[in-house]
Design a binder for these strands. Sequence first.
DNA 1: ATCTTTATTATGTCCATACATAATAAGTCA
DNA 2: TGACTTATTATGTATGGACATAATAAAGAT
Lengths: 234, 234
Amino acid sequence: MKPLQTSSFQTIKTDILQRIRNREWQAGAYIPNEVELSKSYGCSRVTVNRALRELAEAGIVERRRKAGTRVVSQPARAANLVIPIVRKDIESRGAVYRYTLLERTIMPAAQDVQAKLALKEPADVLHVRCLHYADETPYQYEDRWISLLAVPKARDETFDETSPNEWLVENEPLLDAEHVFSAQNATDEQARLLDIRPGDALFVVKRRTWSTTRTITVVKLYHPGATFQMISRS
Amino acid sequence: MKPLQTSSFQTIKTDILQRIRNREWQAGAYIPNEVELSKSYGCSRVTVNRALRELAEAGIVERRRKAGTRVVSQPARAANLVIPIVRKDIESRGAVYRYTLLERTIMPAAQDVQAKLALKEPADVLHVRCLHYADETPYQYEDRWISLLAVPKARDETFDETSPNEWLVENEPLLDAEHVFSAQNATDEQARLLDIRPGDALFVVKRRTWSTTRTITVVKLYHPGATFQMISRS
DNA sequence: ATCTTTATTATGTCCATACATAATAAGTCA
DNA sequence: TGACTTATTATGTATGGACATAATAAAGAT
């Protein structure tokens, strides 16, 4: 009989998960240590270690040296969500993507912008506002600040054809980011741009992006709540 | 000299990430295979394997047998967000948590509820509506359906003291879930319950929870947009 | 030319073994 | 009693070697 899951660390992982679900190993309690488990499963300790490590990464068990491995009592749900690049998101829905630049201004950072971009002293920043359409329907309104201190190359980019998002992905790849999700009512201007009514609910994503040393860009992404949803599975 | 990061798979992982960021290994290109890398790093292949595996899990590289490992060209942002248990969320902000049950009704599933809970045939369901307060300010309005076919025990639970969320975490732990986030305008009733104005933006979380075979519960969580935000780092 | 079979290759996993490390418990001494 | 040192323990990581597996390329047959 071939096992359903080929790899044995996987079968061990799901078996342990089952035992926790069935309360054989209760919440808050310590489970047998790696050596004991490897004996009972008839495998190497490394294999058990990998299973337990992945369960710990999933937030299901907690591990501490010398103490052991214990079942987390009330684990918070860990949702793993993907924030796609707008164009890909729209095209994956079978819609035609279009991009419009609304504003591109270079100016000295105002007080609040300087704080947002964590600039120690006043410096030039780039303010870009733009719209992303799906089949000629406004899909996302983007309001972005880029630190020209961190990305001097951006000074020479018009953003006529390429959206700042895609330009940054190309030119400053794989940065760390922090996201804040919220809901807010559309202002008159936002409503006009997104072709909805003032006060309509907007899904807002605020993103701050940085490299090792500096904040690169902060952006607010506004989605009409009715047309937008963000999904996370398992 | 002691390395900054003790484990060598970690240093290798960050080194590879650096090389990708510096475009030494360009987007879409294949990077050296594990054997070559292990030689150049002077370590075992398994160590390189772990570094690359974790980079693949993070969505930074793609791996295929025989083909090799290549840098993902335009990686979608993978945000790892934590959806806390309401009470803990509120208490961690230093506020006092209070819970109020609004409705608890057992009824045969209507058409739409039957579909939502993926019930093949009509069966009894439990409808629970409740409010979560932070310092006597409404924080979350919860509208939940529980399949009594999947969780017969829920029939005997009053939910007077314990919120359905916490009861389910205790009684049906570690279920798989799917989340959908969106924004919508508050209805008159929602506004009344949350002590906001009708039309105010609400942050909505829809969650479907299932065990191996059956859908256990579906729930809609409504947050006043102004007071709520969900954060995800890195 | 097209289909099928057979290498080849890079990743995926496993093992036994070894040493490192963090956290705790036990022991020692003032 | 209290401060300090020394085991002890479970997890964390590394190694060389081995075999499995998926995907592709090459070779062969029709």
